[in-house]
Every structure is written in C-alpha cells, then in structure tokens.
Design a protein around this nucleic acid. Structure first.
Lengths: 414, 414
DNA sequence: AGGCTTTTTTTCGAGCCTCAAAAAAATAGT
DNA sequence: ACTATTTTTTTGAGGCTCGAAAAAAAGCCT
C-alpha cells in the first residue's frame, strides 16, 4: 500500500509470475500456467513466446508420458538450464562447501573442504572462501559468464539486508560483510543468508504439501536455531536474520549459555548442554563442542537404560517444549521440522517436549502439532541457498524492476 | 508472488493508492500525491477527476494558509466526509461503546453504556450489542444508507479472518461470531478485531513518526495483551489474532494464571497478579478483578514506601522484561508503547524491566529501547477500529477487486 | 481413410491504462 | 501590463491484457 504500480511493471511482474510458475510446477503447459496465475491464455502465450525467444524457457519436446488424451497435446514448458547458473557457498563449523547449480536447479559442479573455522584469523577465513569460489568459477568446464548470483549460507546471525554475518558460533570473528566481499571480488551479486532460514526455504521446495504457508524449522545442533515461515513468507527480524529461538529465555537466571547469558533454551537443549547435563558437569560448566559421533553415542546410551543421559534429553525436551509453547502463543501452532544431529534423538526428546507444551497457551492442541525429523542439515542449507539464488535470478535478471524482498527496503512514502 | 495482475486491477489499485495518500496526508495537492505515489501527474489528474466526480474526494477551496508562493497555487484534495460513514463498536469489561464516524474520520455520533459482561448470558450480550448499534443506525439525524462498514473491537482472541471472538476475559462465553451476526442483522459488512491490534493501528495513525514500521503496543490491564506491527504491517497469528504475549511462559510451572495455566507473564504482571502479590496472597490465589481506582491507589502506596506493593511492581517488571527479551530475540528490539492503567505505574515497573531485559539476548541494546506510556486504552481502541473500518471502505468500496489483507486468504496457487 | 470431436495454442481487434510533452491556468514579482 | 514560475489539464502514442475466434494437433468413430 505504499507505492503506485506503473504501467510497465505489469509485464515485468507477470513475466516473473510465469517463470515462478514454471519453476514450481516443473513442466507445466501454457494452459496450466494460465490456470495457476489467473491470467488469460493469450497473455501467457505472449509472455512464454518472449521467454522462449530470450532463451529462458524451452519447450520440452520429449513429451514422454504421452497422456493419451484427446485433443491437441499439451506442450510442457521448462526452464532452460543454460539460461544462467548460480553458486552457493555454505560455511559451517570446520567445513566449507561450494556448488554451482544450473538454472533448472541441477548441481553441475561441487567442491568441499575442511578448515578450522574456530581458530582462523579473519583474512585467512575470507581468503579460503574466496579461493574455493574462484576455483569453481574458473573451472574451464564451466561457462564463467553465466553465473548470475551467489548465495552464501552461514550458521549465525546475519543482517536484514543479507549483506553480512554479524555473529556466528563457528568463529570468534564478527561483522564480516561476506556479500559485499564476494561482489567486489567477483562482480557477481551476492547475498549472505542465515542457515536456518535456508533450511526453511529448502523444506518449502522439497515438500510443499506439508511445508506450505506456516511452519517452523528448528536446528538442534551445537546451538539451537530456527527458520520460520509465516503466511508463505520467510520471517526475518527487523534488523537481523531474526528468529533467535535458541536464545529465548527458558528459566530466568538459569543455566549458562554459550552466548554468555543465562537461562536460554540453548543452554538446556544445545549439544553442549545435553552433554554437560549427561556428564553431570553442572549448569555452569563451560560449553564445549561435542562431535556428532559422541552425540549419537550419548543418545544410544540414553535409549539403553534410564540414567543421567536420558534425564539430559528429558530436560532438553522440557526446555524446547516450554519455549515452543511461548512461540506458539505469539504465532499460533504450526508444523515443526527438527533438523540436525539431535533430531535423530527426537524419540528421547519428544515425550518431555509434548508434556511441557501441553502446559502452555500454545499447546491447547498439542496433540495435533506434528513433528518431522531430518538428521542432516547441510544438504538442506545448500538446497535452500540454491533456491534462494535462483529465485533472485528469476526476479531480478529476467524481470527487472520488480522489488525483491531482500533489496533495499523500498522508499515507502505514503 | 502468487497470482498475476490483471489489467483492470491496475486502475483499482492506483485509485486505492490515491485515496490512501489523501487519507494520510490530509489535504495534499495533486502534485504531492504524484510525488508520494510515484505515478505521473497525468495519471493522478485523471484518477482524482474521477474520484471528485464520484463524490469521494473534494477540492478544498478554503485554501486558508495561502502559501504565498509563486506559480499556480496548489489545490488541496480532501476526503469528502459525506462519501460514506463507518460505525465502531468497542466491547470491554462491563462497558460498551459505539461511534459513527464520517469518511473524513470525524466522530459524528456516540453512545456508551455500562453492562455486566461477566455474568450476561449469550443472547443478552449479543442483544445489547445489536440494540445499541440499531439505535445509532436509526438515528434520524443520520443518513442510514451511508454506513458502509462496522468494525467491532474486543478484548480477547479473535480469528484470523476477523469474523469471531474466540475467547475473551470479559465473559465466560466463547466463539461468538459477532461479525457475521452484525452482517446478517444490518446487512453491512463487519469485522471483529482484537483490541490490542487496534491500539497498534491507532498509534500508527496518531504518531507515524514514532510508530512507523516496527513497534509494539502492550496493554497492561487486567490481562496483558499485545499488538505488533512489523515492517509496517499488523502482525497476526496464522489462525487467531495472535500475539498472546501475556501467555508466554515466564517461569515454567510458576504462578497461577487466569487462563488456568502456570507461569504466564500475565500471572506476574496482570492487575490481579500485582494485586495478589502486593496483598501477599500467594501465587496460587484465585485471580480477582481489581478496579482501576484500586490499582492507582496501589501504585501510590508503592511509590510512598518500600514494601510488598513496590515488590509486586518489581516482580511485574521482571516478568515483562524477560518476556520482552524473549520476544526481542525473535523479532529484534522495537519501540514499545505501554497502554492501560498499569502503564501509569510504569515508573515502578521500568527499573526491574530494564534490568531483566539486559540479561536477555534481545537486550543487547537495552538502553536504547524506548518506552512510551498511555494510561487510557479505550480511545485508542476506538480510533483503531475507526481507521480500520475506513481503510476497508477505501479499498473495497471505492476500489473493488483489490485483495484486502483480511479477506479470504486468496487461493495461492503457484 | 476421412470426417468429427476435443483440447491446446495462436491471432486479432478492442478497450484501458499510463506516460511524456505540450498547453492552459493561476498567481507573484517587476 | 507583462514575465516568470508553478500547478493542473489535455492530448497523442505506446503497451498491456482480454475475449472471441481461428488455427493446430491430436484421438475417436464410422
């Protein structure tokens, strides 16, 4: 309700609509697109003719499963894989991975690398990231000119404008404007995304049935993170990537959190919190990084017999339950995806979680709240970055002028 | 990104834009409108000529403060007060008030009434509401045909579609579809709004400088409620009016709340909670309704000397602080308006609140978080309802076809 | 095989909408 | 009275979408 619609925006928007419809549907016919977008057949025909001529869409001749229907057969429209490419960079604890993805969403090149993020100095961390990107961009097999966007995902807090990492648990460094660094280095538009937000984006593409308008992705790993989709749109804070679910207060003045404060959810449900609780090290014990293998062993022990390990998971569940309850009081209950190594131990967490949530305002229908688990977060983050980058390409390159969600906050005047 | 833009939507949208620009600016000239909307002068000229001809806008001849500038003087455009009228109904504890407001936003008729909401049976409560509305609508001084919309505000939870009150602290009754009842009774489109949301809407209109894109309105009264504006838009839950800040969990298993659960913020910061704490009645004491006068006396006693009264306010501040901290962890800090009788005692609450919030993730910049107070919530709620109803009229009646925010959730397909 | 039916896609004219530039209007200054 | 300045209206051109009709491309039926 802020700024008028120009006459020429119309075509741009509708072009973007068509592209987005094709990306979602896979190989829709023109008629299907007309139905989903609500535009007339003639408009779709005109726009898709343009897009095909520009090399953005292709008609898929290979109409394999000939529907054997009467009437003129539909011609499927597909994204032209060669129209563009995007590059994703995912930086997580001690691990860096890069992928090049074509316009149709297929991975066409990959590279991964271990590195000690916790102790690297600033220049070296940035240098390693740039180096791996450069190697992929200069790969002779790849048409360099076609990489249209870079999306970088990182565990930690990013700013609303998707320019910089503000803080991250994987490094003591702060305020690294990765997006700007990438842009100046390679001259390709780049954004810096939060890992949990990308998980949510990926889920939305992977399973649009279940993860459609409202859902929550929670990362249960060293730290606790959240990606939140409300009314079909990724929810971000007003200044930062937002959704710091892990640092909602579970018990005022309670257990010591990695962030230095007390009583955060993470201080009860993060890997280090479960670990120190199981080891009876007390709530003030300094947080330590626990390997995934150790966590899996811990879960196995907890399943084996009742003891401090099981109790540790119980307390994690309680903290998650009460905090989810508080969250649900604000946004109403929604399906939840638990992602990360501790999601594999969700059987140990769930009973206490459900018991706690039932005691909260958001838990009125606690029985009907459904949880899904996915033990491996990295593929999700990569997929999310890819889709995010491709969506940007869809909107900005091929339908320029349409305001993008993450762009400068559009000078609202009225 | 869901549905295409039809050609004829364009005019409708831009008409709505112009109307909205006039409503915000008061008496803007065509040139000013062109500047704020970004549309060309000719378009604005064409649209405003239409709107004037239809009797929606008027040219304000009385160009009182003749700007004494060179050039052709600007002609101010104003909303025609007679273009339409709206009616607001505000139902709060033991109190019912109705107002008729003209299209320019001026109150042209009012009626108020006391009634025992807590004990009234369903039919009688509905009946009283209908009766007072009917009296205003049938007022011979008023042109009946012109009331284009009704907005009803109520303390409690409403559904996302703004049709029904789901639950309210002012009555034991639940699930009253007031919007539908009003519509069938009077044949006028109606919506059912949450009181705190309307407070937020009103603040946005009253002081757009301070309450612009992101802010929080918190009602400190018998219960604790919240209206939240994020990125310029009212935030609602996905199923209900949402934002049940008062029922976030402050201390798991803690004090008894009016909602029957334990540890909610409200059980520490609601009037009854402060009262029972000051009276040393214990955290399990049955919630009682405390009059505003009693609360003011309590605050006075707390200011006078250190004692259980002061301690009660301290504990309320602590609960509010930790919960705001959790909220800020999710949405980033924003300006806060404290509304209601306990907002008048904010001096007693603030120190503990700030101390608590500083211990949370959201409190990193706790010093810079600014609080404003407004002891009287009723006028705000009424104003909010009026603006909400008028905005609906702007969009639906005079620019039909444009999707309204509260309307059926538009079949998103793509 | 040939004609008929069905479905998809394209074409074409009509109707709007917005824009840019020019013209008209209204006033202050000289 | 005339000019400069600013606002508003008018006008012609170009684009966009829509609906209807035509064209295209199959399968179905006799």
């Amino acid at each position: 309700m802020s700024v008028g619609i120009r006459h020429d925006d119309l075509r741009r928007r509708n072009r973007a609509m068509v592209i987005s419809a094709v990306r979602r549907a896979g190989q829709p016919s023109r008629t299907e697109i007309a139905a989903t977008t609500g535009l007339s057949h003639s408009t779709i025909s005109a726009i898709s003719a343009d897009l095909i001529q520009e090399g953005i869409l292709t008609e898929s001749k290979a109409n394999e499963p000939t529907a054997l229907k009467r009437g003129r057969p539909q011609i499927g429209l597909a994204l032209n894989p060669e129209a563009a490419a995007v590059l994703t960079v995912v930086l997580s604890l001690n691990f860096l991975s890069v992928a090049v993805i074509d316009y149709a969403g297929q991975v066409i090149a990959e590279e991964q690398q271990r590195l000690d993020t916790l102790v690297m100095p600033r220049d070296q961390l940035i240098g390693e990231c740039m180096a791996i990107v450069r190697r992929r961009l200069q790969d002779p097999d790849l048409d360099l000119g076609s990489v249209a966007r870079i999306a970088m995902g990182i565990q930690g807090i990013t700013d609303t404008h998707a320019r910089a990492m503000l803080w991250s648990p994987i490094t003591p460094l702060t305020d690294i404007p990765f997006a700007d660094i990438l842009e100046t280095e390679f001259g390709i538009p780049a954004t810096m995304e939060n890992d949990c937000n990308m998980m949510a984006v990926a889920l939305q593409w992977r399973d649009p049935e279940r993860y459609r308008d409202d859902f929550i992705a929670i990362l249960l790993s060293h730290g606790i993170g959240m990606g939140l989709v409300l009314k079909g749109t990724l929810f971000t804070g007003t200044h930062s990537s937002g959704g710091e679910f892990g640092h909602m207060i579970h018990r005022p003045g309670g257990a010591l959190c990695r962030c230095g404060r007390r009583g955060c959810v993470e201080a009860y449900a993060g890997n280090y919190a479960i670990w120190r609780s199981a080891m009876k090290m007390g709530e003030d014990a300094e947080p330590v990084d626990v390997g995934d293998a150790d966590m899996r062993a811990l879960a196995a022990k907890a399943r084996e017999k009742d003891g401090p390990e099981r109790e540790a998971y119980r307390r994690a569940g309680e903290a998650l339950g009460f905090s989810l309850g508080s969250l649900f009081a604000l946004i109403d209950p929604a399906p939840v995806a638990m992602v990360g190594v501790s999601a594999a131990a969700f059987d140990l967490i769930e009973p206490a979680l459900r018991e706690a949530i039932a005691q909260t305002a958001g838990g009125q229908h606690s029985k009907s709240i459904s949880f899904d688990t996915e033990p491996n977060e990295l593929p999700l983050i990569r997929e999310g970055c890819a889709m995010r980058a491709l969506t940007f390409v869809d909107q900005e390159i091929f339908a320029p002028g349409v305001q993008s969600r993450t762009g400068a906050a559009g000078k609202n005047v009225a």
